[in-house]
């Protein structure tokens, strides 16, 4: 079975996370679960990849973190939530355009 190469997808982990955060704040496991669902279980993001993206994007001010209680799912424990910033939204739109261009170019070299 063909699997997604982590080298290829690396540049777009941020895009996926930001896409999910566009719909509202979320926390680690919830985001990884959504990535799995939206990708129809074709891509499972590693915990280390996810956390690395959080720290990097927070440093770049694309996202902000805050601590909150996820309610009944949380077993009474608080989670670190992330929300997208204006700068993050802008970055997301740029990445979308970049992907459209990348897809266009690569597609020309793919023989079906």
């Amino acid at each position: 079975m063909v699997e997604i190469s982590s080298d290829v997808i690396r540049g777009y982990n941020d895009t996926m996370i930001l896409c999910i955060l566009m719909k509202g704040p979320s926390y680690g496991y919830e985001i990884s679960k959504q990535i799995k669902t939206i990708s129809e279980e074709k891509y499972v993001i590693k915990e280390t990849t996810l956390y690395s993206a959080f720290t990097r994007m927070e440093k770049n001010e694309f996202i902000e973190s805050f601590v909150a209680d996820p309610g009944p799912d949380g077993n009474g424990k608080k989670r670190t939530y992330y929300r997208i910033t204006e700068k993050g939204k802008e970055y997301y739109r740029e990445k979308c355009e970049e992907w459209a261009l990348t897809k266009d170019v690569i597609e020309k070299f793919i023989q079906h």
């Binding site: 499972v44 590693k46 915990e47 280390t48 990849t49 956390y51 690395s52 993206a53 720290t55």
Partner: peptide, 14 residues
């Protein structure tokens, strides 16, 4: 198996 690896972690932790 879905955790990832240490190298990436070190990089990600800055």
């Amino acid at each position: 198996s879905e955790f990832g690896n240490l190298d990436e972690l070190a990089e990600s932790l800055g």
